[in-house]
Design a protein around this nucleic acid. Structure first.
Lengths: 136, 136
DNA sequence: CGGTATCCCGGCCGATACTG
DNA sequence: CAGTATCGGCCGGGATACCG
């Protein structure tokens, strides 16, 4: 074991390799909250409270944590207004907007295919519970 | 705000609502292993062992678990050959292939922008150590 | 080969309370 | 308003061993 990851000179063009940069990017994106925050910011600059209200179920802690992560990776900017009460706005960077467009395609896909997946799950559930029920 | 499609029911088309089907779909996709498995199967039908070898770091348990989930949701089919030694092939369904195309765009994006994100992280790390804050 | 079964640890994440 | 602090549960998921 070694502390920290050694990406070496690999720019990581194979996400299947753990040592690849693209793999670590994936690890960030593979989060429900990251996805929702990025999508929420796609069409508008929003404040902390606005995000919290829009994203149902997120806690202040997770929201802050997610935003910090996105900020660290250069996907979101954090703009502080020195006023009282405090005002902080979050906005996607160009990089973030670029990504958001792709994530939004996933959302569109999810919306359009939700019925199919629901049916698939129902069928799977049927098959699983069927042996305890009738067998005609 | 919601593109004029705020149905607000459980069939819903607003992934920000926890009760929405599209939200649950997202919860499936928001997984590193799901992503990698789907992408691995994008170009080829593969066996369990082939997947395990291709996806670095995945354990048998997680691979099976992920495949079962994808099968349940109708994204992957599992074909068993009654031979000895056993042979099982996993293949994307049409639905799965459709999704895989989108996920592959994410991968392409990750590869292309990995350097930018690497730099952003380096800058963030610098700033954290220096604490010499100056806003623009 | 293609899985299951089991143990178990770390850390993710939710809940809540508090501060500037 | 925009966060931090803290605690704790639960479960994701790694390691390992074992079946058909």
């Amino acid at each position: 074991m070694y502390s920290g990851r050694d990406f070496g000179d690999s720019f990581g063009y194979d996400a299947f390799k753990r040592t690849c940069m693209s793999h670590t990017v994936l690890e960030v994106l593979a989060s429900k909250w990251v996805y929702l925050v990025v999508c929420a910011l796609r069409t508008a600059t929003l404040r902390h409270g606005e995000l919290a209200r829009k994203i149902e179920g997120i806690t202040p802690k997770m929201l802050t944590q997610t935003l910090r992560e996105l900020e660290r990776d250069g996907l979101v900017t954090r703009k502080i207004y020195p006023v009282i009460p405090p005002k902080v706005e979050y906005e996607l960077t160009d990089l973030g907007r670029n990504l958001a467009a792709l994530l939004d395609q996933i959302r569109t896909w999810s919306e359009q295919n939700a019925p199919h997946i629901r049916e698939a799950r129902a069928r799977a559930q049927m098959g699983a519970g069927e042996m305890a029920e009738f067998q005609s």
